[in-house]
Write a protein that binds this DNA or RNA. Sequence first.
DNA 1: CTGAAAGCGCTTACAG
DNA 2: CTGAAAGCGCTTACAG
Lengths: 341, 341
Amino acid sequence: MTGPSITIKDVAALAGVSPATASRVLSGNPATSAESRQRVAAAVAQLDFHPNAQARALRSTKTNVIGLLLSDVRNPFFADLAHAAEQAALAEGLVTLLGNANESIPQQDRYLETFISQRVDGVIAAPQGEGSSSLHALLERGIPTVFVDRTVNGIDVPSVTTDSDSGIRQAVEHLARLGHERVGYIAGPQTTSTGRDRLKSFSRAARDFGLSSDPALTYFGDFQSASGSAGAHHLLGLAQPPTALLAADSPMAVGALATLNRKGLRIGRDIALIAFDDIEWFSLLDPPLTVISHDVEAMGRAAVGLLLEVIDGRKPESVVLPSELIVRASSGTPDPSLGQP
Amino acid sequence: MTGPSITIKDVAALAGVSPATASRVLSGNPATSAESRQRVAAAVAQLDFHPNAQARALRSTKTNVIGLLLSDVRNPFFADLAHAAEQAALAEGLVTLLGNANESIPQQDRYLETFISQRVDGVIAAPQGEGSSSLHALLERGIPTVFVDRTVNGIDVPSVTTDSDSGIRQAVEHLARLGHERVGYIAGPQTTSTGRDRLKSFSRAARDFGLSSDPALTYFGDFQSASGSAGAHHLLGLAQPPTALLAADSPMAVGALATLNRKGLRIGRDIALIAFDDIEWFSLLDPPLTVISHDVEAMGRAAVGLLLEVIDGRKPESVVLPSELIVRASSGTPDPSLGQP
DNA sequence: CTGAAAGCGCTTACAG
DNA sequence: CTGAAAGCGCTTACAG
């Protein structure tokens, strides 16, 4: 469309210096004279020069690009995480290549391969499944990598995760105090560390607080809303249905909510509902939803911080962020008919 | 960390061919023998070779990367759009570099500069404001660009937009039929084409259906939720407050909802509420929200389709997608006290 | 502080 | 169908 794009040679020629000097000025190398700096700056402005990032990366083996691999951008938790990480990266001069695995391992592999080919400076990943081949390829090449939200067994990279246990324990205690004995749990996929950890925490807390440990009360979803609907449907159809539901992420909670509404159950009265992940509008529902909340902003920032340390060759400690129960009306008020004093 | 990364020379050596032949095999050039193809493929597999995308791009002036510039990833509309566009691009072998302008022009400029330096093959943008300098730089370089959702006056690039007018007209007619005369409108920023178009449509429809044209009934928000809260607060504080509210996007509708709930107003009875943009959980609220819906999936796919045509040197026609009203309980039922037969 | 030269890892006419 | 050679646009020792 336009002519051949302008290069550092054009800038150098216009400034009356060598390409080497122009390059030094552009990269902020202190070994330049004030005069050169001024002349090069003027030439850059006049020509509207944008250095070719490919050529720069090829020579310097730095791209200033990081890869961010997420499970599902449409999940508000990950959208917030993407926003937080991307803003934190931008503040460090890094741009973010976003890969959306769509909760699919082949698609995760595809993006990881792309990250390798693009020679990203580092990768922040919320990984699926157990070490896919591409994840191993990434690490074998020594590409700085950190995990966020999720981890993978047997892969030792720094991570930022949520301590789901505290929040889940609070939620179970809360339900037990309200007199619930049969609590249905809509679990995440057991191929993710968060899916496994949260189920473990729930089971342990259920036992500790004297809730039923009937295995039929656990339904295995996939962190997407349709499985939340199906889970609620299934659990309510049990011979002995639960009096409360806990969903392991927000899309599944939304799905469960839809099912409860469709069945005409009054949430907070006929049945209690608690969601893992706080979302702005959960507090706007009628009744507002009781949630287990954690700090997504902090998670995104911490992930970028860890990645920068790994890029610098350090071996930072993993970060674990807290979770906590926020009680709202969806978990109901004490109901004497449930046998509570 | 690991040794020097392996290159096409290593592959060629192991396969017993020249780098040129290896390159031809890798790029699918038909001028290769079956034997070469087989030997190179084996070497690639054995060495786990990933071609350096920087070097390839430098030489071939194709990066297979597109830039996607959005206003705000946390807005569910844009999250869905990002998902749709990214999946469509991936199906065409293109990876997506995501830039989140965060409804800020300087940040938009920063990402556009990055896209230029990264020599992306094309850009899909939901632009802010009137042609920022970087937007012009992009176009002057002849970088293929399409607009999605929004356009910029005086910049003639193909676009995919929503015909907001039909949906807004249906919404206003619906409210008029229910007997509403004073409808508060929470507008988007007038620096965006969608903000302007929707306000124009609302004003015209209000006049056509005999609603009040009191300018005090329009509040100017910024498409983010806090301004929806503020807008509802302001409109309800008028000497003659509106009996219905229409918000120009979903985050502002969420904000308005929060304000209405806080004030103890019963939505669908004390006041009607309609949102532009359909979001899964809007139908799950109590009462479910009446919305103006449009097809985000189709928008993302169409944007990628247009961009591919522009990259191919064609000049495709812009695409306009329809919008339509979906009536739910939040807009209420006819109320005789409002003077409707 | 500066410039000439080499080279990052590919691809692509060119000649065979 | 194949290979030798040049070159994409930068950066970086090296020598001065």
